[in-house]
């Protein structure tokens, strides 16, 4: 299936929760969806006969500019039918949350923890959402564009990054 067809299939099934389809400005055509619907959509595209997206290749957090909503990007692949799609969702910077897909794709478990660790994106329904790369008691989320590191961590001075 082409990405266009996958988009058509999703938008007829989920209506308003599928926001738009981005083809320009990206080398991986992307379907933008609502954060609350992402788990339902992943369930649907995994189980539907014509889609069979069984592999979540990558899950990435992204902060576009330090002001607007944070993004979560899902790169999916169907090993059976050999087609690809990218899903993108967005969440408010501070108190939003994205439905977790960790129970659908186990690979999302650690990737969502990483996105939480570095961007502070909360995934509702995640089995064990805690930091993974940074120290458990680290303050702030380092990959957010408006991140300002604390001056000290356990008595050690934190070097400023330009």
């Amino acid at each position: 299936m082409t990405e266009q067809e996958i988009y058509a299939s999703l938008s007829s099934k989920f209506g308003d929760q599928v926001v738009e389809f981005i083809e320009e400005e990206t080398l991986n055509p992307t379907v933008v969806v609502e954060a609350s619907a992402i788990a339902d959509i992943c369930n649907y595209i995994k189980d539907t006969e014509t889609l069979q997206f069984d592999s979540l290749m990558n899950l990435a957090g992204h902060d576009p500019d330090g002001e607007s909503d944070l993004n979560v990007i899902y790169h999916l692949h169907s090993t059976e039918l050999d087609h690809y799609i990218t899903l993108k969702t967005f969440t408010p910077r501070d108190d939003g949350s994205v439905a977790s897909v960790a129970n659908i794709y186990r690979t999302a478990d650690w990737h969502e923890r990483e996105a939480y660790d570095l961007f502070g994106i909360k995934f509702s329904g995640h089995p064990d959402l805690k930091r993974i790369l940074m120290e458990d008691d680290w303050e702030g989320f380092p990959l957010k564009k408006d991140y300002v590191p604390a001056e000290f961590y356990r008595g050690m001075r934190i070097e400023k990054v330009k």
């Binding site: 400005e25 990206t26 080398l27 991986n28 290749m57 990558n58 990218t86």
Partner: peptide
């Protein structure tokens, strides 16, 4: 150019 890629 402005845009994004996932390359594996």
């Amino acid at each position: 150019p402005k845009g994004e890629v996932y390359f594996r």
